[in-house]
Design a binder for these strands. Structure first.
Ligand SMILES: [Mn+2]
Ligand SMILES: [Mn+2]
Ligand SMILES: [Zn+2]
Ligand SMILES: [Zn+2]
Lengths: 141, 141
DNA sequence: TTGACAAATAGGATCAAATCCTATTTACTA
DNA sequence: TAGTAAATAGGATTTGATCCTATTTGTCAA
């Protein structure tokens, strides 16, 4: 919670009851919930809280590194015809996905207890950041 | 293209002009396009092709490993309050995301020329497959 | 402590991706 | 070449995300 107040101050985000509640709810969860799930939970405490506020708040938090967005960014599904071992760099600004090759990264293997616990059908390494064209926008952080 | 016919036969998928065209278009691309982009391209050749067909076809292809789905599965954005180094396992059946820790994987570093070419702000390793609860459904492959 | 102001919110409208539905067409098999 | 299951078109529906604007609220300086 300290971290939350700190980061808000640091980026001059106003501390509102809604924001506090959104953060608390997410922090208490372990299911990597989406905005809608959090909204449903919060409606008990704030019958009028809007989905837009929850969604906006989560995105705001992720922009200032209070939380993370995982596995999918709400963008449309995208496809790849290339099944050979390769990896991706995803530009946060222009949304392009670039292939890159790295034999060292191809070798990585999750530890055996993970492999025991789950049936693993695929693994991928995704880098995110800013491509050459969008370097300048990186300062927006 | 051989691979395409083989896999279709193997899974008794009918070879239709639409499917062939979808595959050719994706194969010719290098931008990791979404269904809508492919649909737009194909409309020149097939004025009546439906978006549903393109979308369904792509998903079908990915199920039988003719192509891959990358970065986002069209699902809603999901969030993570945990900023510590950790990794994710994503169950394809129940859509749950599980945390796991692996200090070896934490160490991985992309080669320097990648770091030179892009501004990297994050890296993650995502495993996909079937969790304990959903093991049985893995046979659907 | 108060007042001013920029920032945040609610609620509804709109947009866009994905999925569903059903009548029709088509690819495969025998 | 005919029969059948599978695939498609096209429109409707669902749902996540975003936009819009009037109203409310947190913050800061007087
Ligand atoms: Mn790729
Ligand atoms: Mn996590
Ligand atoms: Zn870019
Ligand atoms: Zn599962």
């Amino acid at each position: 919670m300290d971290r939350f107040y700190q980061k808000c101050k640091q980026h001059s985000l106003k501390i509102t009851p809604q924001r506090t509640a959104v953060y608390k709810t997410l922090e208490a969860s372990s299911s990597h919930p989406c905005a809608d799930m959090i909204h449903k939970v919060l409606q008990k405490e704030f019958p009028n809280i809007s989905l837009d506020t929850v969604n906006r708040t989560l995105i705001t938090f992720s922009k200032v590194n209070i939380i993370d967005v995982v596995e999918g960014r709400g963008d449309p599904r995208r496809f790849d015809p290339n099944l050979d071992a390769h990896h991706h760099f995803h530009c946060l600004a222009c949304n392009k996905i670039f292939d890159f090759h790295d034999t060292a990264l191809d070798q990585i293997t999750p530890s055996s207890d993970i492999a025991k616990k789950f049936i693993i059908t695929g693994k991928k390494i995704v880098l995110k950041g800013y491509c050459d064209n969008c370097r300048s926008q990186a300062s927006t952080l």
